[in-house]
Design a protein around this nucleic acid. Structure first.
Length: 262
DNA sequence: AATAGGGGCAACCGCTCTACC
DNA sequence: TGGTAGAGCGGTTGCCCCTAT
């Protein structure tokens, strides 16, 4: 008995988000928060699945996101946590403020795994690999097996195999946290560096053109929020400090709790 | 200058977990 | 207690950009 789809898929848009969609979603979430994700797209006037909205917000639009490459310290922490937790990306992300599980997962798969292999470490077990293989073909086969093994491992671990001890952190916001504006357990500010902002722009606008936001919102400029250097703003060192304060004030005006951003 | 290939990242899919009735 | 719905998580896919030829 299959489950009902999370939402009506018919007529829903898929693929990259446009600047306009981003604007609608951010505007809606900032002014209303979300009661349940399923309703968000309807209320925000989006032809998207609620799940898609949640993902977009969590992985991309949340203003407390740090963008850009992981620092050395963060990378070390990820490796360390991965050795303890395995592919529990959300738990790992919970220890890295401003980072998302998706981001960490991608970084792991594209950078850290290679790095560890170069260092002669097995990215799955974090143990030194036997340096006995000289056949590159065998290496490739092994790599393929590694991938399979790691997915199997994680699939297995999902069902309880392996270290299932709960990461002692994380006010993991489960459902009880609904109706807050952001349930992110990540607590630190920062966000889109200009480079990521342009990356986002290209993601959002398939042509790669600069984001050209439509009319500003009544309350505030959403693009300003997204592109803002939150780290600087919140540390008081950035050029946009006043704007940040303004925005926070305006957020408060609409009942938005600054705490969840900090 | 044009093209092919690879890498990186955003987004989707499908499954599991949890809360509620 | 079992069923259902919603949310979250991890794996995978596909597209875009960059680099090498």
């Amino acid at each position: 008995m299959g489950r009902q789809p999370c939402c009506e898929k018919v007529g829903l848009k898929k693929g990259p988000w446009t600047a306009e969609e981003d604007q609608k979603l951010v505007a809606f979430l900032l002014s209303h928060g979300h009661c349940c994700w399923r309703l968000v797209p309807k209320l925000a006037g989006l032809l998207r699945c609620g799940k898609s909205c949640r993902l977009r917000w969590t992985n991309y639009l949340r203003p407390d996101l740090k963008r850009g490459l992981l620092s050395d310290d963060e990378e070390k922490l990820v490796i360390d946590l991965h050795s303890q937790l395995g592919n529990r990306w959300s738990k790992i992300a919970a220890r890295l403020p401003g980072r998302t599980d998706n981001e960490i997962k991608n970084h792991w798969n594209t950078h850290i795994r290679k790095k560890l292999k170069k260092m002669g470490l097995d990215p799955v077990t974090h143990q030194p690999v036997a340096a006995s293989r000289a056949d590159p073909l065998e290496d490739l086969q092994q790599e393929h097996c590694d991938d399979k093994a790691s997915s199997q491992e994680s699939a297995g671990s999902g069902t309880g195999a392996g270290a299932e001890e709960e990461a002692p952190t994380s006010a993991e916001p489960k459902q009880g946290a609904a109706c807050s504006v952001s349930t992110a357990s990540a607590v630190s500010p920062s966000p889109c560096s200009s480079s990521s902002a342009s990356a986002s722009a290209s993601a959002a606008t398939p042509g790669g053109a600069d984001v050209d936001w439509p009319d500003p919102l009544d309350l505030f400029q959403v693009d300003a929020i997204i592109d803002m250097d939150w780290a600087s703003i919140l540390s008081g060192s950035g050029g946009g400090g006043d704007i940040g304060v303004d925005l926070f004030d305006q957020c408060s005006d609409v009942g938005f709790d600054q705490e969840v951003w900090m």
